[in-house]
Design a protein around this nucleic acid. Structure first.
Lengths: 123, 123
DNA sequence: CGGAATCCAAGATGATACTG
DNA sequence: CAGTATCATCTTGGATTCCG
């Protein structure tokens, strides 16, 4: 009954064909989650993000921001001043995504002792 | 006031030193999220996971399962039969983590049309 | 300041073949 | 069946340099 197109959408993230798979990978990307965490607190400049997210390089920051911008999760605002000033903030959908990501992050940060405790000792 | 050790824990995921950073990366890993999604539905065998998660290789499946097992999120049960039978299931903390991940996945799958709609056309 | 471009090392990933 | 081992590849990531 389901057409090929329909089945691709129903396949969801477990299907390589479904667009949701790519969205999920972008959002759960190593640096994306940390960027979403920062922007969830408010507007940030490029240099601010670089400072707050320990260990990120300019290249990966710029690259990841671009992907999230293309996905419509981040709004990039350029101010025509010298020196340049660029601000990043979450869009509506970006806020919704960040909210879900934050729940995972908060669970980890708050439950860290229990999580580390539950780790099997013998590896 | 805060000692070095304390500040590391307070630094949370934004700090490279905090253990939560690694936990977060393991959980938001490309294949981890899909594995968690499957196991959230119940116990699965190795071959079942391989079939359900389209595009995953045996190597990455085995490797990712091992990481999640070492983190205490997955329980691996080996049955001493021929041919071999191995089952994977979530632990308590694994279920909690999967729950958070599922909220993100469900949001993406359900809101996919709106998400794709919100994507900027000019790139 | 906020990148873009380039180069290169390192690690992640995939396909295949093999084993208990 | 459930992996492991090996090799080839492909992406990631970092350092550097340059520019508006």
């Amino acid at each position: 009954m389901a057409s090929y197109e329909t089945s691709k959408l129903l396949g969801q993230v477990l299907s390589t064909e479904c667009p949701s798979r790519e969205i999920l990978e972008h959002l759960t990307n190593k640096w994306s989650v940390l960027i979403l965490r920062c922007l969830n607190e408010g507007v940030h400049r490029f240099s601010e993000l670089k400072q707050r997210i320990e260990g990120i390089s300019e290249k990966m920051l710029a690259q990841t921001l671009k992907i999230l911008e293309q996905d419509g999760f981040i709004l990039r605002t350029v101010y025509p001043v010298v020196p340049p000033k660029v601000e990043y903030q979450l869009t509506i959908t970006g806020s919704q995504a960040a909210e879900k990501v934050m729940q995972l992050i908060n669970w980890i940060e708050r439950g860290l002792p229990e999580i580390l405790e539950a780790k099997p000792k013998i590896e």
